[in-house]
Amino acid sequence: MREENRDVMSENILVVFPHPDDEAFTVSGTLAKHIEAGAHITYACLTLGEMGRNMGIPPFANRVTLPHIRKIELERSCEAIGIQDLRMLGFHDKMIEFEDQVLLDSQLDALLKELRPTIVYTFYPGFSVHPDHDACGESVIRTIGRLPQEEQPIVYCVAFSKNHQEVLGKPHVVNDVKEYLKPKMTSIEAHRSQFQAAELLGSKKLEDEEIRERYGWERFWIYPFHVSE
């Protein structure tokens, strides 16, 4: 385990997740920290999460309005974190694993060529529970794997399947984001059709030690493109 202490000044960072809200619990604190240090962040969100099951309590969304509502939620979440560049790629929710891989990879490849990020955040293929998460991670890894080695960014993966620690071991990077709980909770709250943020906090405040421990750490595994090193 180590704390992420690289110089992140003016770094270009690409975040690739399939659903609006994937960023909120996993990486929002880390991104806010990067941004404070001067990084420029592009978040490529593959879908609008239009097949999501949560419609709010009581349901204020429906199958037809959900994509519009989640788009606005995503924009607010990005605003809260400070993400400068949000790209909504328009793929169909739940269908990423069935999507034309050439099409999917070519869009990610175009982003990589355009932005030349030094860091990429995505889901760890095979350890991310939702088929869209795994397929998203696979596409990112596949596309970056095709780049010349010297052009490959570091890929920090989020993993949370039941067996992830058994197979992957302890996270390679554990970021302390306790100073960034405000943007993080605002990002979570922005997705109000998906999360009952008030319930997550209960009667507790952000300063509460239990809340700070629960949401104050973000964990990543670096994808091993070159295992021999």
């Binding site: 999501g52 709010g56 309590i57 349901p59 429906n62 199958r63």
Partner: peptide, 13 residues
Amino acid sequence: RLLLAGHDGQGKL
């Protein structure tokens, strides 16, 4: 249009 849905006890579709 006709939009019908069934939500469970937790409000999930």
